[in-house]
């Protein structure tokens, strides 16, 4: 599935998160499953806790915090969002 820049990403309200040791652990309260996010994933999750964001917003946010080429950031974030969508953590 291809994710467009304007696609709005919304976090699942039934997921709680906690940062431990520089990583973010998500617990899906409905499914009872856990997921670990690295620092970039944690930053995206924190942004989504403030409300829905477009993919472009998320890319800008990460680009302003982490040092990496834009195309790499976009590709990594698309992969991450796809993964989160597949696991029902974001819509």
């Amino acid at each position: 599935m291809t994710i467009s820049e304007n696609e709005i990403v919304t976090r699942n309200e039934n997921v709680v998160a906690r940062e431990v040791g520089g990583e973010t652990v998500l617990l899906d309260l409905e499914a009872g499953t856990y997921f670990g996010l690295n620092a970039v994933g944690g930053a995206i999750w924190t942004a989504l806790e403030d409300g829905p964001r477009t993919l472009a917003d998320l890319c800008s946010l990460v680009a302003s915090t982490f040092d990496a080429p834009d195309d790499v950031i976009e590709s990594d974030i698309k992969a991450l969002i796809s993964d989160l969508q597949a696991n029902g953590l974001v819509a």
């Binding site: 040791g21 520089g22 856990y34």
Partner: peptide, 11 residues
């Protein structure tokens, strides 16, 4: 064990 690994393990 890393903290996140520990948390998922302990759950």
């Amino acid at each position: 064990l890393g903290a996140s690994q520990a948390l998922t393990e302990i759950m």
